[in-house]
Design a binder for these strands. Structure first.
Lengths: 339, 339
DNA sequence: TATTAGCACTCTGGTATGGAGAGTGCTAAA
DNA sequence: TTTAGCACTCTCCATACCAGAGTGCTAATA
């Protein structure tokens, strides 16, 4: 294990590095943090820390740089300190959103901008996962002769609409009956569950051959086919300020990854179950293109159920303390807003 | 004016430059294009072209590079050639979209990806401008006690929904009456027009103080408050391949501009009226950050009315011929799809 | 025994230097 | 009017060099 003094030096190096990029040397550490030790001693300690894998030297006779394990150690330790929620931040969130009475999707769009503005990194928000959201009400509206619009209201305040082809002979009255049936039968259940139930029903009813029922089931199957969740990404230009993004190819890779939104959705879905604020450092996330980046994520909830994820993406050399606080406050804020 | 020979040399220089970046010299021109002239003669012609402002030298004793006027001349001339629509492209468009029966917004999202994939530049599509779209049908659905959902169907196949606060005492039956009234009175009119008419009505009715009517008007005002049009931008990573994007600061500026979507919306709105495919070269567009880029745009229509804009954004050193053809075909395709 | 001062060594980053290569403009000849 | 020839210019690249920062090691010190 690490003795107290070594820990302090490690934190000092990491904090130095977060403030100003570039290898940090022993002299700088002694100057900025007053350990009452000479550079030579610090050098010895740093050499030990290197051996333990928390620091590394880009090249001989350069200062030290934190490794992924170094960051991990650091993040774990600041997580242990009781996280004091930044009240100024919460106030600002309240101020920014007090006037807003939008549906949740435009709200999440704004929230991603917010995340990025506050952190100066990339802000990401995802709309509630369809497998999580629960049906509040469905409306089926005949739109054209052979098309109908499905309007899905969820308990979380989302409105989804979808165009579904329909047999021309079905009347609005019949659609209303179908909608009523669905509402009475499935209200409060998750969309995924409803889809499953309907599929089961379908196999059962096939023998019946009642044309209205079979049409209804077809409509439902379409209506509840899971739409990919929306994802909002903001602040790309922010991170380009950072010196780690000096390589065009890396920028391109990152942009490519972020444009392939399903990749990010997957990534965030995977951590959606976890409790509290998650931090993935460097290669801890599954996307190779994001090996050089870190991700701070949290879920927002409806009641106790986590239903969606928000995150900040930034360099490994990130101000974790602040990022965690921002993500955490924002997630809580959204949760409160939903209830 | 320019004699035929000079024109050919100008085109040769521009095409050379489009194919391979970097100043093009007289020798290269004679080698690639067989004018039957010596480098020295080409040099003289190029010198003339420079004097006329179509070419310029990055520095003495370098080859020549096209100026904005040079590109303009070139683009105008290829526009005069009867634009043969790339039938292979149209076929591909048909193939890619034949299976798709989505609402127009997800379609436009796909279309922007398409534009960028085909051109290898940035693809932009905008959803129909609310001032242009016409009301097909409105539905008002009580959602919670103090909120109602407005569902707007437009003739162009768009569905907009909005949450609007409402007095709790208003019943669904009353909402239906309001919706019916709006439908009967305003169907087929543009949303902007409706908004104007309602505002007029409002000032008139204020004296009446009938609470239902005033509530109805309040609802409508909210319902028709113009939502900013959606805009879909794809292919950022594509353009980073190009050598003109070697400067990080320029990339950041560009990203910043593209993230401020209202800027792009304005830009495209301004050219929405124009007939045919528009080309804006370099500083011809109003955004300073896009001075080094060109924009090829066209509108799609519903009947004769142009209702939305699509575009390709790329370097000034763009394959205009191809870009114009792609934008043109895609715009026509969307127009056909809407009818 | 733990810490420190001193020193030689190493690596980076910026600046000066010197062709090689590509292209031009000009002049004189065809 | 076109072309060949030539001197000149400018960029790009590789090389060399130096200052600066930092290390590791050794020997001295508390």
């Amino acid at each position: 294990m690490l003795d107290e003094r070594s820990k302090k030096v490690l934190y000092a190096v990491i904090q130095c590095y977060i403030n100003t990029p570039g290898p940090v040397g022993s002299r700088v550490v002694t100057k900025k943090y007053h350990f009452g030790l000479s550079p030579a001693t610090i050098r010895n300690i740093m050499s030990d820390l290197e051996e333990m894998g928390y620091l590394r030297q880009p090249h001989t006779s350069a200062g030290r740089v934190p490794t992924d394990s170094g960051y991990r150690f650091y993040v774990d330790s600041i997580a242990n300190e009781k996280q004091q929620i930044n009240s100024a931040l919460t106030a600002e969130l309240n101020k920014k959103f007090e006037l807003i009475k939008k549906d949740i999707n435009s709200f999440l769009d704004d929230a991603s901008k917010m995340l990025s503005e506050l952190s100066h990194y990339i802000g990401v928000t995802m709309s509630p996962n369809t497998s999580m959201t629960t049906l509040n009400k469905i409306e089926l509206l005949k739109y054209r002769d052979d098309q109908l619009a499905v309007i899905l209201f969820t308990d979380e305040g989302m409105i989804q609409n979808k165009i579904v082809p329909v047999a021309p002979e079905i009347s609005q009255r019949e659609l209303n009956r179908i909608a009523e049936y669905i509402n009475s039968r499935f209200k409060g259940r998750s969309l995924d569950e409803i889809k499953r139930l309907i599929l089961k029903e379908m196999t059962k009813e096939r023998v019946l051959c009642d044309s209205l029922i079979s049409e209804a089931i077809r409509i439902c199957r379409n209506a509840f086919s899971s739409a990919p969740g929306n994802i909002y990404i903001s602040g790309l230009s922010e991170v380009l300020r950072l010196p780690e993004f000096c390589d065009i190819n890396r920028i391109r890779e990152l942009l490519q990854t972020l444009e392939a939104k399903h990749l990010i959705i997957n990534l965030l879905d995977n951590i959606a179950d976890a409790e509290g604020t998650q931090v993935l450092i460097g290669a801890e996330n599954s996307l190779e293109e994001m090996n050089q980046l870190s991700l701070v994520a949290a879920t927002y909830k409806e009641g106790d159920r986590p239903i969606g994820t928000i995150a900040i993406i930034g360099p490994k050399r990130m101000n974790y303390q602040e990022a965690i606080s921002i993500v955490d406050s924002t997630a809580r804020f959204i949760t409160k807003l939903l209830s």
